[in-house]
């Protein structure tokens, strides 16, 4: 399983959401098959709500963890 990290620090929502959706769309088959996990690094707090909420509505599993000076949003395949 490959982990692909995208650093979005410095961007604010909704730009972060559009960037995240573009990455998810581009790798949707890899993520759904479990081959890839996308990790977004953001320092924008709103994004920790909008990105996971939208990704979950799209059928992905998400996990948000607080790091020292940023948030880590993990997008992976939902358990069946």
């Amino acid at each position: 399983m490959e982990t692909k990290c995208i650093d979005m620090r410095g961007q604010i929502c909704p730009s972060t959401l559009i960037s995240a959706l573009r990455e998810i769309n581009a790798r949707k088959d890899e993520i759904r098959s479990g081959a890839t996990v996308l990790v977004f690094m953001t320092d924008n707090r709103d994004s920790t709500v909008t990105i996971p909420e939208t990704a979950e509505n799209m059928g992905y599993a998400t996990k948000v963890t607080k790091q020292d000076d940023y948030y880590r949003i993990e997008i992976c395949a939902a358990k069946k």
Binding site: P14, N25, T50, E53
Partner: peptide
């Protein structure tokens, strides 16, 4: 509809807007 704010021109200028294709992404 996705529950977020409108995009501001200073966030995405006109050239970037066309290049990013936000309608296509969303």
């Amino acid at each position: 509809l996705l529950g977020t704010l409108p995009i501001r021109p200073e966030e995405l200028d006109d050239d970037s807007l066309i290049e990013t294709d936000p309608i296509g992404v969303v």
